[in-house]
Simulated assay, not measured.
Amino acid sequence: MLALALTADLTGVTELIPLDTSEEPFFYNFKVQCTSCREVHPNWVSVSRYESNEVSGSKGEANFVWRCKSCKRESTATIKNPPRAYSQSSPPQRRNIIEFDCRGLEFTQFKPDGEWIAKGLESSTKFTGIDLQEGEWFDYDEKAGDEVSIKDMKWEIIRA
C-alpha cells in the first residue's frame, strides 16, 4: 500500500480536497517505476478512481494497468478509498490524502494538476477552482474579511 501524503500551511481555509466526483473525476498524475526492473516511465501517468481497466489473465480490474517496456511485466494500482480532506493545523501536519494498492509498480512523484476545493476556516465559504500547480494559492474570503492561502506544500508518496 502506498499513500499520497500532504503537508501544507493553510491560512484561513481548511478541508482541502481534490474535486473528485463521478461527474467530474480527478486524475492523480504520477511518475511511475517498475518494482521488478526499476525502470521509470518517461511520462506522467493519470489515475482516476472512476476508471476501471481489465488485468490480463485475470478476472480482476484495477484503476491503472501498466506494462513496463523494459521487462514486459504488467503492474496495477487500485485506489482504496475516496480522498480525505486535508485540515488546517498549526504547525502543519502530514496527512494521507489517498491510498493505493500497488502491485508491481511504485509511484515516485506527484503533480497536483486538477481542481481542488476548500472551505473558509471561520466563515465556511466554499472555495472552488483551486489550482495548486504553482505550489501556492491565494484568495480573499469576503465573509471573514481576510486573505486566505495555501503554501509551503510538500507532497510525499509513503508506505501506508
Results as ranks from 00 to 15, higher is better:
residue 35 T to L: 09
residue 60 G to N: 15
residue 153 M to Q: 10
residue 108 T to P: 08
residue 74 E to C: 15
residue 84 R to N: 12
residue 114 G to H: 04
residue 151 K to W: 03
residue 138 F to D: 14
residue 83 P to K: 01
residue 3 A to G: 15
residue 13 V to I: 15
residue 2 L to G: 01
residue 26 F to L: 07
residue 124 S to K: 13
residue 39 E to C: 10
residue 16 L to V: 09
residue 6 L to P: 05
residue 21 T to N: 00
residue 58 S to V: 06
residue 125 T to P: 07
residue 100 F to T: 01
residue 119 K to M: 13
residue 36 S to P: 00
residue 144 A to I: 00
residue 15 E to L: 09
residue 128 T to C: 10
residue 54 E to M: 12
residue 18 P to K: 05
residue 86 Y to V: 13
residue 19 L to D: 03
residue 86 Y to M: 05
residue 26 F to D: 03
residue 88 Q to M: 09
residue 17 I to K: 12
residue 50 Y to V: 08
residue 63 N to A: 09
residue 56 S to F: 13
residue 123 S to E: 06
residue 153 M to P: 00
residue 53 N to H: 15
residue 131 D to V: 06
residue 18 P to Q: 07
residue 65 V to F: 04
residue 75 S to W: 00
residue 147 E to H: 11
residue 7 T to M: 04
residue 28 Y to R: 06
residue 96 N to K: 14
residue 108 T to M: 06
residue 30 F to M: 01
residue 89 S to P: 06
residue 137 W to F: 13
residue 77 A to P: 04
residue 130 I to S: 05
residue 84 R to P: 00
residue 63 N to C: 10
residue 90 S to C: 12
residue 6 L to T: 02
residue 5 A to Q: 12
residue 100 F to I: 00
residue 125 T to S: 15
residue 32 V to P: 00
residue 137 W to C: 00
residue 77 A to I: 06
residue 128 T to D: 14
residue 102 C to Q: 05
residue 9 D to T: 15
residue 124 S to N: 11
residue 150 I to D: 08
residue 20 D to Y: 02
residue 76 T to G: 02
residue 30 F to L: 01
residue 21 T to V: 05
residue 50 Y to L: 08
residue 123 S to T: 09
residue 137 W to E: 00
residue 113 D to L: 14
residue 65 V to Y: 02
residue 37 C to H: 03
residue 91 P to I: 05
residue 50 Y to R: 07
residue 130 I to E: 08
residue 49 R to Y: 07
residue 152 D to M: 03
residue 86 Y to A: 03
residue 158 I to M: 11
residue 158 I to G: 05
residue 35 T to E: 08
residue 127 F to S: 10
residue 125 T to E: 15
residue 74 E to W: 08
residue 82 P to R: 13
residue 109 Q to Y: 09
residue 65 V to G: 09
residue 141 D to S: 02
residue 111 K to F: 14
residue 82 P to E: 12
residue 98 I to C: 00
